[in-house]
Design a protein around this nucleic acid. Structure first.
Lengths: 146, 146
DNA sequence: GTACATGCAAACGGTTTGCATATCT
DNA sequence: AGATATGCAAACCGTTTGCATGTAC
């Protein structure tokens, strides 16, 4: 569950201070309801609290990642984060044309991972996967573009 | 084929100058016979030609990538490159313990990609894939380590 | 009251770029 | 000769860090 109550309890139980900045950043991620880049979180945070520094955003996100409250998502070059939701784990498919990201159910990866595990004795880490490609809309609306 | 002759002919045909630096860098990649980080290419290049600059390495690698003579491989944070070999396309599995990389035959990805394509109407780009995980050696020799 | 978080500014590190000179064709 | 590649140094940009001050507990 990703309600405020549960998240904040997790932090308190770990002895992590609930500062306004941390609550704000977590609320932004929760309300965004998808992964977000650092700059995006920072921009939203500033509208609520103009003095917040981007270093605080980085520190908070990294801290939350360490305790698994947020998950880092590999979205191309820059860091993206989302709230860790144990109820609906998923991977991502990113459209290289429009930049939109789509969730990918874990089942697809599980079959794939199982093959690699059994055929190649390699234990793949399929907890956090990102696949690039073209979404159906872009695939349809452009023929030979990037 | 990745023999010098063929590569150099490709460059000449495209009107790209064959400078000593470019030949050197391509030779290093060819002899290395696997993907290499920029710093690694640079280090090797300097033993042969101490005045070479890392900017030249970057420029050459990016140029060769643009004309598809080398392929960029997503190996964690930094850029890695390898000679594009149409005869033996492959993907990579990187061990997060020892850092070693293993080739992965394209067939595994093709089945996987086909599922995504048909089930989800997403056209995955499976030309250059990297999977993290643990190689069999490391999986065996450490129990709960990073 | 005290340990820890924040804001600010500066550092960091990989990568790119501007420019004068050297080199390929 | 003319277009382009190189070396050098500086810029870039996302991210991290040091430090003095402010704040949650």
């Amino acid at each position: 569950m990703n309600d405020r109550r549960t998240i904040f309890k997790t932090l308190r139980d770990l002895g992590i201070r609930l500062t306004p900045q941390r609550m704000l950043i977590l609320d932004i991620l929760r309300e965004g309801n998808t992964h977000m880049g650092v700059e995006e979180v920072y921009a939203k945070a500033r509208t609520a609290f103009p003095y917040i520094d981007i270093a605080t955003v980085y520190r908070t996100l990294n801290l939350m990642k360490k305790i698994d409250v947020v998950t880092e998502v590999a979205m191309g070059e820059r860091l993206h984060f989302e709230l860790t939701n144990p109820d609906q784990k998923h991977h991502h498919m990113v459209c290289t044309s429009c930049g939109k990201a789509f969730n990918l159910a874990p089942e697809y990866l599980e079959r794939f991972g199982e093959q690699i595990r059994s055929d190649l004795s390699f234990e793949p880490d399929i907890r956090n996967f990102t696949i690039k490609g073209k979404c159906s809309f872009c695939a349809e609306h452009l023929d030979e573009a990037g």
